[in-house]
């Protein structure tokens, strides 16, 4: 760990988060949006783990485990919604999801 400061990890996480924003705004594919959200969650987790090391208590790591768990739940629900909507609209482009009824 010598020579590595907290800022190394925070800057990496910030750039990873910006990449996630790029993915979410660039994609018109519902699964692509999900990939962007996963990138952002990973960026937040890098921050949590870095602060956990520098603070020296375990709370950050526990919180990161909860974030990973919620990301798994979110991916499962989002993909089942995508599959369900795909049956209705025959498309996974977000531009085609223009109605909420039935």
């Amino acid at each position: 760990m010598s020579g590595l400061g907290l800022n190394h990890f925070l800057v990496l996480a910030a750039l990873l988060f910006a990449t996630g924003v790029l993915c979410v705004t660039l994609r018109r594919n519902a699964i692509g949006l999900l990939i962007g959200v996963e990138l952002m969650l990973n960026a937040a987790n890098v921050n949590l783990v870095a602060f956990h090391r520098w603070h020296g208590n375990v709370d950050g790591a526990v919180f990161a485990v909860f974030v990973i768990m919620l990301a798994a739940a979110e991916a499962a629900v989002a993909l089942s919604i995508v599959l369900h909507v795909f049956h209705h609209a025959a498309s996974i482009s977000t531009d085609d999801y223009t109605e909420m009824k039935g």
Partner: peptide
């Protein structure tokens, strides 16, 4: 990155849950 930070449990969980699941 988690492994470099010394969080062995999180590094393994990351591989298991993200690569193996999500």
């Amino acid at each position: 990155i988690y492994a470099i930070l010394g969080s062995d449990f999180l590094a393994v969980t990351q591989v298991l849950v993200y690569v193996g699941g999500i």
